[in-house]
Design a protein around this nucleic acid. Structure first.
Lengths: 212, 212
DNA sequence: CAGTTACGCTACGACTCGTAGCGAAAGCGT
DNA sequence: ACGCTTTCGCTACGAGTCGTAGCGTAACTG
């Protein structure tokens, strides 16, 4: 979570250890500040005060606002799981509804778009977002396909490269559509919408695999 | 573009008129500053200096950074047109490639995500984005469907409400997928990707209309 | 020429940022 | 118990940005 070379390389650190409670308090205070103030009006000084922590302590652990907010929001995606609803279509609908529920939170709305905007000019930040947020979502695509293949709903993959491209395409379509619906169109990704979207996606994928 | 009640209600304004050249210079300076500095490091004072304009002049015309950047980036979407490539699939591919080309610009990357992030806590800003940017894209979806219907590629719409929902779905899927591919996955939406995406989308829509 | 509005310029208080310095606290090894 | 090391809370600071006020001048209208 926090990038510190020494604490991982040497098993036993000398000196006073960093307070784990402070980490938790800071991240929770960050989410609270995001809810109340949004990204632009949230200040690190305010977060430190809310967490009952000195501002210098915060700067010792995170390089800046971007990194802190990524860590604070990343935990929201821990609850993402692939439910076994019996069919590929039902599984996808379940995951998409979970994803939509997370994006419905005010702290996720304002934080995700902002850090993505910053990441366009900050390659390390983009990597941090990828490993702590995006890859967790992408993993569900691969798991879902594996489960559907085991069920016999999908044929086993023969071309690994083509399979990877298809997984990337699915991921961008699913995540992009939900994000755009929620944040740009500002309309809820409710069950009816998710059902329509899933049907179009699956029919499209079925047709694409039928006529290569 | 600029919200001024008086200049439109009363046809002839008394006093010194606002310099149209200043407007153009400010918007161009804004785009230049976005390219060089990105959203977060761009300051209105710097924009005013680049434009050869006093900072106070800038504040007389725009309420803040958000509104200014929306206006500055909106013109990038003026070049979006619906090319007549002969088939619905080819038309969609053409539009998506245009959209991808705009999103490939650095000023569009950093600005669009940032203002969308701000709009989650600013309803007037979201409305401004919608009317000056989003609706211009959405219109292409409606035009494309009308043209395809005229060609006979699509059946005439019977249920207006269902047709509107479908158009919204298509729009969120197309725009969301391209944005996610470009900004989150950070990989180019090149011809190959657009071709794969368009095929999945059209097959899905065809299948969905076949089995209502 | 009088009236009105926009402009450039300067200056200002308020705020945020990120860092430095200090003494005290909390661990570890001997 | 005693150093050694690192973290902690606190205060203070220069630098930078924000958005506005005031002023004299420029541009356009009747």
């Amino acid at each position: 979570m926090v990038t510190d070379m020494q604490s991982r390389t040497s098993a036993t650190r000398t000196g006073r250890p960093r307070s784990a409670a402070a980490d938790a308090a800071i991240l929770e205070a960050t989410r609270a500040a995001l809810v109340e103030l949004g990204w632009s009006k949230m200040t690190l000084g305010d977060v430190a005060t809310r967490a009952g922590v000195a501002k210098t302590t915060l700067y010792r652990r995170w390089a800046g606002k971007n990194e802190l907010v990524v860590d604070a929001v990343a935990v929201l995606f821990d609850e993402l799981e692939l439910p076994d609803r019996g069919s590929l279509a039902a599984d996808i609908e379940g995951v998409v509804l979970q994803f939509a529920a997370i994006l419905d939170r005010p702290e996720a709305k304002t934080a995700l778009m902002a850090v993505v905007a910053e990441s366009t000019r900050d390659e390390p930040l983009r990597e941090r977002i990828r490993t702590s947020i995006v890859d967790r979502q992408k993993r569900l695509v691969l798991e879902g396909r594996a489960r559907a293949t085991a069920r016999g709903e999908l044929p086993p993959e023969t071309d690994a490269a083509a399979a990877a491209r298809t997984a990337d395409l699915i991921f961008d379509v699913v995540a992009g559509a939900v994000v755009h619906r929620t944040l740009v169109s500002a309309e809820p990704a409710d069950e009816e919408w998710v059902h329509s979207f899933t049907r179009v996606l699956l029919l499209g994928l079925a047709g694409a695999s039928a006529q290569p």
